[in-house]
């Protein structure tokens, strides 16, 4: 029999901390998130679509908006690009989970951090932080770009105008919520294509089709769908007068996202990796 040595883990890796903390899990998820190309591309697309399309639509519509024939408020256009930026938020949220299942990475992740709640919390924090910042920065850039054209026609919007600052912050909040929404779908279905299709369909197709539903109940269903409830906070004046009030809608959206995340967590907690 060979003499056995009681190995002390700390002795062998100089500098290793005895107990990794939640901050270490967060750091690991941050490194993981930013070390694949899809994250950089998606975030860049979010900015280009969000700020770029807002600027473009303001440039092309400014004259019409100033002419007096317009039946829309210029303020409705100042976060217009957000509609398309939603796609990238959904993609980032989906991929943060489904890319792990698609590649088998989830086993590496859970063997490094067996506390599944900590893994999920770290992923949610990284996603929320990134989308919140990207959303607010994009909205401000869109405002600066778009408003330059509106200003030239004398219909510029001030940051102090009603709902403008709220829509800048709201853009970040809504995109972060949408990312978490997609992450929860990813936890439930685990396949990138399936999860992304469900997310896009719910927000873009079902969300718009629901307004065709008849009667008061149909109107309520449409108002309460996640994309419709949550997006109001991200625009100073909505194109759609039937939406819930901005913060009411966002509260409904937050509750929906929380419920879906809870379902995702309950499934994730016990599932074989």
């Amino acid at each position: 029999m060979i003499d056995t040595v009681a190995l002390n883990p700390d002795r062998h890796v100089p500098g290793a901390r005895r107990h990794p903390r939640a901050a270490d899990t967060l750091h690991a998820e941050w490194l993981k998130f930013w070390s694949v190309r899809s994250t950089g591309w998606s975030t860049a697309m979010l900015f280009v679509l969000g700020a770029g399309l807002t600027t473009l639509v303001c440039a092309t519509s400014a004259a019409w908006l100033a002419s007096g024939e317009a039946d829309e408020s210029p303020a409705s256009f100042i976060t217009w690009g957000l509609f398309f930026a939603q796609i990238t938020a959904l993609a980032l949220g989906t991929l943060i989970v489904t890319s792990e299942y698609g590649t088998g990475m989830i086993r590496a992740t859970l063997s490094a951090t067996p506390r599944r709640g900590a893994v999920l919390a770290a992923k949610a924090a990284v996603l929320t932080g990134t989308l919140l910042v990207a959303g607010v920065v994009t909205a401000f850039a869109g405002y600066l770009g778009g408003n330059w054209f509106l200003d030239r026609e004398g219909i510029g919007i001030a940051l102090s105008d009603d709902g403008v600052l709220r829509s800048m912050l709201g853009s970040g909040l809504y995109l972060a919520g949408l990312g978490l929404f997609a992450m929860a779908i990813g936890l439930l279905v685990r396949h990138t294509a399936a999860a992304l299709s469900i997310g896009l369909a719910l927000v873009f197709v079902v969300g718009n089709m629901a307004f065709l539903l008849p009667g008061t109940w149909g109107e309520w269903v449409a108002k309460l769908l996640p994309g419709n409830a949550g997006s109001g906070v991200a625009t100073p004046v909505s194109f759609n007068p039937e939406l819930l009030a901005p913060w009411t809608g966002f509260a409904v959206f937050t509750a929906e996202v929380a419920a879906l995340l809870l379902a995702g967590w309950l499934v994730f907690r016990h599932r074989d990796a």
Partner: peptide, 9 residues
């Protein structure tokens, strides 16, 4: 990322 998750230098 693996090293970071377990406090390994």
């Amino acid at each position: 990322w693996l090293a970071a998750s377990n406090g390994i230098p």
